[in-house]
Write a protein that binds this DNA or RNA. Structure first.
Length: 606
RNA sequence: GCCUCGGUAGCUCAGUUGGAUAGAGCAACUGCCUUCUAAGCAGUAGGUCAUGGGUUCGAAUCCCGUCCGGGGUACCA
């Protein structure tokens, strides 16, 4: 289990910890583990850079907080070159780090092309990240968007932390839900295709899914009206009987059924490909449930033979998880067909055959917490050593003002529609502001998309993945304040400055006097820049792109204050001008890098 | 019922190895563009951190109870 770390500049923090421990030893004659020294970033409204909490030392020093802090501060200032001064407020030791240290930090951040990132090697741990995992009976909606963005971003975060990553997708391409669409198409489809109707394939298939439900509900009503019980009507309505028959035929590999299934799935895949491309997500390896569920079934039967599972009189197969404090879990129905869990067991087995996976991560909503708890135990029982170590990246649901999204009730926010709407809003805003005058229509459209997707992705990723989030379509499309476009805008402004510098023949470089004095704002900015590596680490360890989002927002806010208060190219002092250009360039680099970790691109102009 | 996650400003969200006076954005109101992009900057106002106890030098944060809400507990996926 990763342990959350306090985010500070790791280098200077470590130095202070060790020196404080040493000071405690020398001054008060007691050993103290440097790692237990509490060091944090100094509050904004207090002078200083790093703060040492001295309360834990009072038992050892047997002196007042003020006196103890002063003695330790004195020691630090004498022993550590980087410490230029200190102050004591309410028993907190605030240490000021020398400007030259910060300028060196900036130089390092500026020079390192992969600042904050760790490169993967052949020996690096292999993470397989499963995300997206759609059903093929309907188009993607807002809930899928959160899943896809989190999955993709998590992959990027892991790569940035030196892991090897295989992004994977398990496509739920078989089952009764597909058969419902298939039946509806056969019955009422009149041979419609995406080509003949001009409707995107996944939407067309989704329309038939809705159509099925309409007929099914009507049939139930009619049956109930004739005196049949609701339960019985649900089981005997002609539509559902026909859909089940299709499923049976499919499992029996009936040629005509398989062909229909295959054709409609192809429509859906073509549609998904477009959505994935627009969203900017991709996969290294795709698995299909139709190819894994039988493997799962075999595993369950093996488990039954080995006495791990039990069979009831009606032939259904069960796992008894009461020793683990859970319930009985069904693994195979009485008719021998497989359930969700069966398929996941098969998919897991195939994956571990295909790759030397060190860590399997499932990006799946928190409604399935129980499912993955059980899956982990079942895999372990089946003898897979990796079963226990799987990680369910459990994220919260996306809620709408009106409540939960339900496909069949038409209360979903469709992924394609949402993206298209946001592009239109971006277009309108840009045109009103006249920011892209001089761009060709093609260049402009590219920028609208960048901004629209930036707004959407940032809106979703800035929220702690574990929490449910509210999406109000009316209000959530905002380009001001804590938003993706605000960050992109800051990037575009910096790029504009850099272009102007280049026109003047000025190239950002570390060619200034490092002993110069810098402003408070500049110092703040450099401190924030120096946090980036520990942020990247923290985000991966806590599986949270939101950590990156919040950091980048904070960085950008600080940069905008700096930008407002300071001239860059118009600054008279040459050294200061150079420093500010390097500072700006470095901020731009981190914005691009951090946004990239969230799958968000940044525009040159906006 | 049981399991599980959550409750921070009108709204959407930050805020943990327990640390100083709980922060942003939106919405409202007020200023700032002849100077590197105003999708910006600055300010005003807005809080019993659901609630009651406990732990301690110190609690939004840890523990227990209560209230409210989400999810799960299917021969659906």
């Amino acid at each position: 289990m990763p342990i959350a770390k306090k985010i500070t500049n790791m280098l200077i923090e470590q130095i202070i910890k060790e020196k404080i421990a040493q000071a405690v030893n020398q001054l008060y004659g007691q050993e103290f583990d440097p790692q237990n020294v509490q060091v944090q970033n100094t509050r904004k409204d207090v002078e200083g850079d790093m703060t040492v909490v001295v309360f834990p030392f009072l038992r050892i020093s047997k002196k007042s907080p003020e006196l103890t802090a002063n003695e330790l501060g004195q020691y630090l200032q004498e022993q550590v070159d980087e410490v230029s001064s200190y102050s004591v407020i309410k028993g907190f030791l605030n240490v000021t780090i020398s400007t030259s240290y910060w300028i060196n930090q900036l130089a390092e951040a500026f020079t390192d092309v992969d600042y904050g990132f760790t490169k993967a090697t052949e020996e690096s741990a292999l993470f397989m990240v499963e995300y997206s995992s759609p059903n093929t009976n309907k188009p993607l909606h807002l809930g899928h968007i959160r899943n896809n963005l989190l999955g993709f971003s998590l992959g990027e975060l892991l790569k940035a932390n030196g892991k090897r990553v295989v992004k994977t997708n398990i496509v739920n391409d078989r089952g009764i839900h597909i058969c419902k669409s298939m039946y509806a198409w056969k019955q009422w489809g009149e041979g419609k295709t995406p080509e003949s109707t001009g409707i995107k394939g996944d939407h067309l298939v989704g329309d038939f899914y809705v159509l099925f439900d309409k007929h099914y509900k009507k049939e139930i009503e009619e049956l109930v009206a004739t005196g049949v019980s609701k339960e019985e009507a649900e089981q005997t309505a002609p539509s559902i009987v026909a859909a089940r028959e299709l499923l049976r035929k499919w499992e029996a590999k009936d040629t005509e059924t398989i062909e229909l299934w295959s054709m409609m799935n192809q429509w859906v895949y073509a549609g998904f490909d477009v959505t994935y491309k627009e969203l900017g997500v991709d996969f290294d390896q795709i698995y299909y449930e139709s190819e894994t569920y039988l493997v799962g079934k075999d595993e369950v039967l093996r488990g039954l033979n080995e006495g791990i599972f039990t069979q009831r009189e009606d032939q259904s197969v069960w796992a008894d998880l009461t020793p683990e404090g859970l319930d009985q879990k069904l693994l195979l129905r009485s008719d021998g067909t497989s359930v969700y869990m069966t398929q996941d067991i098969g998919t897991a087995k195939l994956r571990f055959n295909d790759y030397e996976i060190d860590k399997m991560v499932y990006v799946v909503g928190n409604e399935q917490d129980y499912h993955f708890k059980v899956l982990s135990i079942l895999l372990d029982k089946l003898g897979f050593s990796w079963g226990k170590g799987l990680h369910h990246f459990s994220y919260g649901m996306v809620e709408l003002p009106h409540g939960k999204m339900k496909s069949r009730e038409g209360t979903v926010v469709d992924a394609d529609d949402l993206m298209a709407e946001m592009v239109e809003v971006a277009r309108k805003t840009s045109e009103e502001l006249g920011k892209l005058d001089g761009y060709t229509e093609e260049e402009a459209l590219e920028t609208y998309k960048t901004i629209a997707l930036g707004a959407l992705k940032y809106f979703i990723l800035k929220v702690d993945p574990k929490k449910n989030m509210m999406f109000n379509p009316e209000e959530s499309i905002d380009f001001n304040g804590n938003t993706g476009p605000f960050i992109q805008y800051t990037y575009a402004r910096i790029r504009s400055v850099i272009r102007k510098a280049e026109e003047k023949g000025i190239i950002p470089a570390i060619n200034f006097d490092k002993a110069m004095a810098i402003s408070e704002k500049e110092n703040e900015l450099i401190k924030t820049i120096s946090l980036y590596p520990s942020i990247v680490q923290e985000a991966a360890e806590s599986y949270s792109p939101a950590v990156i989002a919040n950091y980048v927002y904070n960085l950008v806010k600080e940069y905008n204050q700096f930008y407002h208060d300071h001239s860059i190219l118009n600054e008279d002092d040459e050294d200061v001008r150079k420093l500010r250009l390097v500072l700006s360039t470095t901020v731009a680099k981190i914005i691009k890098s951090g946004m990239g970790l969230m799958g968000i691109s940044v525009p040159e102009r906006m």
